[in-house]
Design a protein around this nucleic acid. Structure first.
Lengths: 259, 259
DNA sequence: TGAGGCCGTTTCACTATGTGGAACAGCCTG
DNA sequence: CAGGCTGTTCCACATAGTGAAACGGCCTCA
């Protein structure tokens, strides 16, 4: 059964398996940093060679996939990017927070980010940074385990009973991070009291990141804004100032519409 | 026949129609600025109501589509955005040109853009701008007819026989633009001689945009960089300086890998 | 209040459609 | 030249998707 290999829950409702397989192929190509061979795709997805081949041909006719004529490797085309580009540009959360991000960046001169919780992860939606610092922060569209980021912790700290989510999230972190449940829960408790989360040695190990959650319509945390900088700089008066800006901005933004 | 409605050429090769229909649905949702009703989708795509419903359910189970519980309208989720986000971040053309874009922006203080030709259109790939000016330029991921933009004209002017493409492209422009074939061909000839294209009253009507094509591996134009500013400012000494920066940067970049 | 649309959803018999095994062809490596 | 990789093509089979029609909830208007 191929869907077990893809990690699907025994599909409950009725669903077009052809489309599901197709999206699995497209997703695999989009995630891969370089063009992929047919064999690699079939193995990774646990599908039939001819099946994947047919799907790839379909996507090529539609323009979503291209094939390197020399190596005959497949890769997702820019049309696949276009598909999503329209979505983020009209995303109401991003649009409403973007100016605040920019203002925070100008005031603090640090890198600032907007994230939303998805499953047990945070998704990086937008950022503002000095050009030279851009390469040091996660790219938009990437994900990280919640407890691995300050933003995720800010969100978790505002949830009534985060224990299970925290446990699952810790399991998703690299073991080297050395997170243990009791310690993380204590950290969250502190974050809840302080009104912000602070983390060193997370997803961006070189940085200290401070973050605060933004409440959604129901009051539950629906997003988080974060400020990130080199550990040695994020201390003392500067850190205090950064926190002031962070908390003031969160208050100013108030309640946000969910992603 | 539904594919005629979607504008497909009598599909030559064999292809998974289910996937094609699915992508048509997802594309329609991604393009729409607001959640769509099932009825609107079925009408727009010329498909069966139950067919679209089934496809939407599939996408919902996969996480690419969500349904507003109140209005029962459908919209593409952030997961659809994630799909493409990975592609653009690893795109070699964008990565290699991005620092040059930034440098051009800092030197000229105007808005600069990177575009690539796709079919008879240009696709906006990346940009650099002062924050306050961002809303005045096309969003990344949008398309425009080639002759409707300076970037597209710069590319066309480097092609051996652009006549047919120009004619098709003019037909795709709004009639109010008032482009006529002979005049546009003359403009292109001038652009070819000058080494850059200049346009007022195009896709961004309020601006004068100057652009130059970047050659690909075979020498054929594979991309274009453009600088855009208010018409009154893009004149005299400043315009001369902008053109200097533009042409110098193009020379510096040299040959690019195709998108 | 109730008739009449319009909506999203569900059902089901039919067969067109995607499936996957096997055979093919091209390219390297040993 | 043999052997093991590729990506590609073929085709009989039955599964998986299709579409017409029926359902039921929510409106509006008489």
């Amino acid at each position: 059964m191929w869907n077990s290999l893809l990690g699907f829950k025994e599909s409950e409702g009725t669903m077009d398996t052809t489309v599901a397989k197709g999206m699995a192929v497209l997703e695999a190509l989009a995630r891969a940093k370089r063009p992929m061979r047919l064999a690699a795709l079939t193995e990774q997805l646990g599908l039939q060679k001819s099946n994947v081949h047919r799907l790839l041909n379909t996507f090529m006719e539609l323009g979503y996939v291209q094939q390197d004529p020399e190596t005959s490797r497949y890769f997702a085309s820019l049309k696949t990017w276009e598909l999503g580009a329209g979505i983020i540009s009209t995303n109401s959360l991003r649009r409403s927070v973007a100016p605040h991000l920019q203002a925070m960046q100008e005031k603090t001169r640090e890198t600032v980010m907007l994230t939303v919780p998805v499953d047990d992860e945070v998704l990086f939606l937008d950022r503002a940074a000095q050009v030279r610092a851009l390469r040091y922060v996660p790219l938009n569209g990437t994900r990280a385990p919640m407890v691995f980021t300050a933003a995720g912790r800010a969100i978790l700290s505002r949830r009534p009973d985060p224990r299970d989510a925290v446990a699952r999230s810790i399991a998703a972190c690299p073991p080297e991070a050395g997170f243990v449940l009791s310690q993380v829960l204590e950290d969250l408790e502190k974050a809840r009291r302080d009104g912000y989360a602070s983390l060193v040695g997370g997803f961006t190990p070189w940085a200290r990141v401070v973050a605060v959650a933004l409440p959604g319509p129901g009051g539950a945390p629906a997003a988080a804004i974060a400020i990130s900088g080199p550990e040695e700089r994020m201390a003392g008066d500067h850190l205090a100032e950064v926190l002031d800006v962070l908390l003031a901005t969160a208050a100013e933004i108030g309640e946000v519409s969910p992603a």
